[in-house]
């Protein structure tokens, strides 16, 4: 059967090995997720007593109720605010930067570009001490702005790189005709670069958003009080506060990934493109 399928589709790669391995990997992927979802629907007593892979006799919503009562909404809001804030500023600054780098042929802008590229190779973690120092000195500790600013800073290199590659592909004649028509830089930006760069903006925007959304280290270091807690970090503190209540913790985990799941269902293609932005060439 498999053999015939191969002939029909004209595919001849080592499929048997790949196939067996594919199914095995599927099990490895699914077991933890399955385990987490099941456990989140158990009562605490059930969790300790029953076999983790057998579905509970009835779906118990207690854990979810607890999570939602536990300021989940606020953490979600915080995450949304920093993600949207970071991405908007980031895209705005980066598209201007990319435009300047591509169109401004001065030495300075080329040097800048090289500097930005260097930023790609430096792990964000490595700057956490000076960053912390700066944020405290600026009086921004424990604010959402403290999470947005570094997010913008570290998002710039990859964002600019991708946008520069894209803006470079816009034919020079288009820019020239804009100039002939007497359009200034702003108008060129608004009516030429922005519309043409939209797919790239979406892709890289999703990539940046995921980075910020899942970020853990910055919230851990740059914020402390619960009012500014974001989702991934709230999971961790939740684990500390409700150590024994595993179903509630796992329910929190499940709820925290729902927004991305929704995004995945709505725009799988864009999400995948965003994830592999710039790498999947």
């Amino acid at each position: 059967m498999a053999q015939r399928k191969k002939l029909l589709t004209g595919r001849t790669r080592p499929n048997l090995l790949g196939g067996a391995f594919g199914w095995l990997w599927l099990i490895i992927i699914l077991v933890p997720i399955y385990y987490g979802i099941l456990a989140s629907f158990r009562t605490q007593g059930e969790y300790y007593a029953s076999n983790p892979l057998v579905p509970p006799s009835s779906l118990n919503m207690r854990a979810y109720k607890l999570v939602i009562e536990n300021d989940f909404g606020r953490y979600l809001m915080n995450s949304v605010i920093i993600t949207v804030g970071t991405v908007v500023i980031l895209l705005f600054v980066s598209i201007l930067g990319a435009y300047a780098i591509v169109r401004g042929q001065s030495k300075a802008s080329q040097r800048l570009f090289r500097l930005v590229l260097l930023g790609l190779a430096i792990p964000a973690q490595a700057t956490i001490v000076p960053l912390y120092y700066m944020i405290v000195k600026m009086g921004l500790y424990d604010t959402l702005i403290a999470l947005i600013l570094p997010g913008v800073g570290f998002g710039i290199p990859i964002t600019i790189l991708i946008l520069v590659n894209f803006v470079r592909d816009i034919p020079g004649e288009l820019f020239e005709s804009m100039t002939v028509d007497g359009a200034g830089s702003w108008r060129t930006m608004l009516s030429l670069v922005l519309p043409l760069a939209r797919p790239a903006l979406v892709t890289v925007g999703i990539y940046d958003a995921l980075q910020v959304w899942n970020g853990f280290l910055f919230p851990l270091v740059l914020t402390g009080k619960p009012e500014v807690r974001v989702l991934p970090y709230s999971l961790f503190t939740y684990q500390g506060e409700h150590g024994a209540d595993q179903p509630a913790i796992l329910a929190a985990v499940i709820v925290s990934c729902l927004p991305i799941l929704a995004l995945y269902i709505v725009g799988r293609r864009q999400l995948v493109a965003g994830l592999t932005a710039g790498f999947g060439k």
């Binding site: 933890p32 989702l231 595993q246 913790i249 985990v253 995945y264």
Partner: peptide, 17 residues
């Protein structure tokens, strides 16, 4: 699917498991 979870979430699931 694993890409939908944040690292913190993955860590918690596995720790529990």
């Amino acid at each position: 699917l694993p890409l939908l979870f944040s690292s913190a979430a993955i860590g918690i699931i596995f720790k529990s498991m």
